[in-house]
Nucleic acid binder design. Structure first.
Length: 659
DNA sequence: GGGTTGAGCATTG
DNA sequence: TTCCACAATGCTCAACCC
């Protein structure tokens, strides 16, 4: 049944070693002639550039597995015994976090896009159908799945598997409409449900079960029936368990139009998890499965615990922790925080070309699309990543961090062109652009929380007469504090202990840099940039406080640095009280250096980031970075790990990193 | 030692 | 005839900087 077991390829059956994702079992694919599917997929792919790339990736994976085997063999008995101690301790710690008090429900719509299309066109009922086109299909209905057709399969292969397959083009607005209908139902059971995608969601139904005196299974039945009637006939499957990880596994068990309930007691969970294949776990994909299986002999979740010492010896701590938690049937049970998007991107595939003019025009199109999407969502970002897929399917990415936040297609295109130019000549079949590092990342607002700025205001009575613009600034800086920082700052301003006070003062120092970043964007979605923003800011201040400034000329040709109200830098909005003499000097130096840098390399360009980093770094050094990198370390505690790397030599094997 | 940045890769739907 | 998408997220590592 497992694709991995077919790796014993014989010369007469070369397709048996061609492990594509399409041969992995999916709901509705039981009884499919897997060998036939594998053979056809192999025959149609053989010799293509895509196939060659797959072979290259496969070879790389085998190398990784081999390398891990070697490292495994080198482990001594005492090494393993030491790692076992680590495992034993972690098991105790993880067990202490086990929470069997919650009831989580995972809902997954059945063949969602295909079902929606059938709903709006009943003549498709009972016929094999796929949503998508000849290059790629998004989903297939259950009739098509019987032929081995499935999501993410190229349409031309799907047609070969099922010559009568009907193709229906993707219609996102339609799916969004139906998705909204299902979400209306979900909200009745958990107003804070987590939408995984258009067609799936996690609901914490603990309260609704308690209030109505119903079991998780009864609620699931009711919800599914409600989804069916509200959508006019769409079916879904559900899983009920103590945590989200288990609930997701459960929803797949009786698909389609079914449900599975896993009782909330430890021994039931452990029995359930013991024989569960690792691939069933969200986050463990083809590569991880092969590495764990072929290098370490780990096939089931139980094996993760039994071979825990190997995992801790060979993988990073966070990966090993994840594996061990899986082996214990532990998953997230908390009410998740609001998550905001981290990046936005746009990419297009086309016939491979090395024609620079053509590539530039594609790039311009994509920059325009991306800029449009960003404006639509009111986003500005400062890191641009160019993604290229060469004619041989090799993926390359090149990134640059800009000096300022932007969403303009001109800015994006200007820097993207530079990045692309550095790669030429090359034949390319896909170009993608991604923008990340949003100004939003530091805007997790929660008006109920105390803020450093409030503290500053209370501390400094000379700033009691703040005008409206200042109030706006305060709100912006309030929004600048990340969740982590807000946690540390949850104090009542009237009852502040010495330690809290000390913390607050330390935060005051660091908050200036954050304020600086936030203020650049506080007027969104008006999308003011650079000089416009500065002008606007100055206009807003001119009537009340322009006269109350001290000027420091830092460069002959540039606008002098002014401390508005004796407090705030007119160039970037950073706030530094007069007593911060050294910091102010450093700040002036920063603007001077920035200007010199601009003179050297042209405006807002940062394609040689090192020197720039040095300058910006200096600026940040003043803020005694207590701040975590936003959304990285903290989020890793809440979001499933998707990739697993070994402790060392991760790149030494493939060594293909390009500089 | 710890933070940032850039690059590569895995995973998901 | 058609010949393997797109969007988003996060982990890890190396290099660099303070």
């Amino acid at each position: 049944m497992d694709e991995g077991e077919s790796s014993t390829n014989s010369p007469s059956r070369p397709w048996e070693s061609y492990n594509t994702v399409f041969t992995n079992a999916k709901a509705g694919m039981e009884g499919v002639d897997k060998e036939k599917v594998q053979r056809i997929v192999y025959e149609m792919s053989k010799g293509s550039k895509y196939f060659q790339n797959e072979e290259r990736k496969e070879a790389l994976m085998k190398q990784k597995i081999e390398h891990m085997r070697e490292r495994c063999a080198k482990l001594s008995a005492s090494d393993l015994s030491n790692y076992q101690k680590v495992v034993d301790r972690r098991i105790l710690e993880l067990e202490a976090t086990r929470d069997l008090s919650r009831v989580w429900l995972h809902v997954d719509m059945d063949a969602f896009y295909a079902a929606v299309e059938t709903l709006s066109n009943p003549s498709l009922k009972g016929k094999p159908m796929a949503v998508g086109g000849l290059s790629m299909i998004s989903t297939a209905n259950y009739e098509a799945r019987k032929f081995g057709v499935r999501a993410a399969m190229p349409g031309f292969i799907a047609r070969k598997l099922c010559p009568d397959l009907i193709f229906v083009p993707v219609d996102f607005p339609k799916y969004t409409h139906y998705s909204d209908l299902t979400r209306k139902v979900f909200r009745n059971y958990d107003p804070n449900f987590i939408a995984g995608s258009l067609d799936e969601a996690y609901l914490d139904i603990t309260e609704v079960c308690r209030e109505r005196g119903l079991s998780g299974g009864e609620i699931a039945e009711e919800l599914r029936s409600s989804v069916h009637s509200e959508t006019g006939g769409l079916t879904c499957s559900a899983g009920v368990a103590a945590n989200r990880l288990l609930a997701k596994v459960c929803s797949d068990i009786n698909k389609p139009n079914g449900q599975f309930v896993l009782q909330n007691d430890r021994s039931t969970v452990m029995t359930f998890i013991s024989s569960l294949p690792i691939r069933k776990i969200g986050g463990i994909g083809k590569v991880t499965e092969h590495i764990l299986k072929d290098a370490l002999g780990i096939k089931t979740c139980e094996d993760m615990v039994l071979k825990g010492s190997l995992l801790y010896a060979l993988f990073t701590q966070s990966s090993a922790d994840f594996f061990l938690a899986v082996g214990l049937g532990l998953g997230k049970t908390d009410t998740p925080e609001v998550r905001s998007r981290k990046s936005i991107s746009s990419e297009r595939t086309f016939a491979a070309t090395g024609d620079e003019r053509l590539l530039n025009s594609k790039l311009a199109e994509i920059a325009e699309m991306l800029s449009h999407d960003m404006k639509k969502e009111g986003l500005m970002a400062r890191t641009l990543t160019l993604k290229l897929k060469t004619a041989s399917f090799e993926i390359r990415s090149r990134a640059v961090s800009l000096q300022r936040y932007t969403c303009s297609s001109e800015d994006i295109l200007k820097h993207a062109t530079k990045l692309l130019k550095a790669e030429l000549p090359v034949s390319i079949r896909l170009i993608g652009l991604r923008m990340s590092q949003f100004s939003e990342e530091i805007r997790h607002s929660d008006p109920s929380q105390g803020t450093i700025t409030k503290f500053i205001v209370q501390k400094d009575s000379s700033r009691q007469n703040l005008d409206d613009n200042d109030s706006f600034d305060l709100d912006a800086s309030k929004n600048c504090l990340s969740n982590n920082e807000r946690l540390s700052l949850s104090y009542t301003s009237h009852d502040t202990s010495y330690d809290q006070l000390k913390d607050v003062v330390e935060y005051e120092e660091q908050s200036v840099t954050q304020n600086q970043e936030c203020k650049k964007e506080e007027k969104r979605p008006q999308v003011l940039e650079g000089d416009d923003l500065l002008r606007k800011h100055k206009e807003s201040k001119s009537d009340t406080s322009a006269e109350k400034t001290e000027a420091v000329s830092i460069f002959p040709q540039m606008e002098p640095l002014l401390w508005v109200d004796g407090y705030k830098c007119n160039l970037c909005g950073i706030e530094l009280p007069p007593s911060f003499v050294e910091e102010r000097q450093e700040h002036s130096d920063f603007h001077l250096a920035q200007r010199l840098q601009n003179e050297e390399s042209g405006p807002s360009s940062s394609t040689t980031p090192t020197s720039k980093r040095r300058i910006l770094g200096k600026e940040k050094a003043n803020s005694k970075t207590k701040k975590q990198k936003p959304n990285q370390k903290d989020d890793s505690k809440h979001i499933p790990i998707h990739t697993f790397f070994t402790k060392s030599n991760q790149n030494s094997n493939d060594g293909t990193q390009k500089k």
